[in-house]
Amino acid sequence: MKNEMIKIENLHKSFGQLEVLKGVNLTVSEGEVVVIIGPSGSGKSTLLRCINFLEEPTGGSITINGEKITNSQHPKINEIRREVGMVFQKFNLFPHMTVLQNLMLAPMKVRGINEEEAKETALKYLSKVGLAEKANVYPENLSGGQQQRVAIARALCMKPMALLFDEPTSALDPEMINEVLDVMKNLANEGMTMVVVTHEMGFAKEVGDRVLFVDGGNIQEEGNPNEIFDHPKTERMRAFLSKIL
């Protein structure tokens, strides 16, 4: 049995009267790629954002690498966050810094490593995502696909145990989606633990070790990609697939 890296137990989240997550349970093992799919407003992004407490859960707990957390006031919250990288739909690069500075800031301030080492790491991951020549460029001068690749490199520079992807290709022009997905595929092949919320079913099939179908605030169906796409068990899943495929 592989290491349990992320364990979500009975997770609830409400926005006022609206209950978005209704008691989700989920375990992600080391090296596993979990893909979360589901209709808009189903709570899949909220679920992902709860994992590193960008969203404050209303109930339940999340255990990351043995540390059990129930809210963002936990004293070790920053230590947990640095181990769990996040890639956002809208990239969220820091516009006032060059690409290199974007990559070096957190390793230096959070990990406390020196400038030289941070730069070396940054350049290494930048060439990994194929953008070594853009080190001294400001984010606004990059295409969407390039920005997202920089955002992935920025998360990697912290050497996280796991990466969360929140619809990483949804804000991209169609011709740029593949360059980002290719980077993600490479990471998956190298054994990175990943939780990916996406609408890219091709990616889910090809890369996912496990696919979760989330609807109505809970996991309706889960299994390996072939199982779930070819033989959906629930009516909801069938309805969802018929709409997108």
Binding site: N78, N92, L105, A106
Partner: peptide, 29 residues
């Protein structure tokens, strides 16, 4: 944009570090 604070926090920066290095320099302009 709130995404700037989220990006900073997701990298493990504290609230104050994110404020100081990411949000305030942009706000000053």
């Amino acid at each position: 944009d709130a995404g700037q604070m989220e990006a900073g926090r997701s990298l493990g920066l504290t609230w104050w570090q994110t404020m100081r290095f990411i949000v305030l320099p942009q706000a000053f302009k």
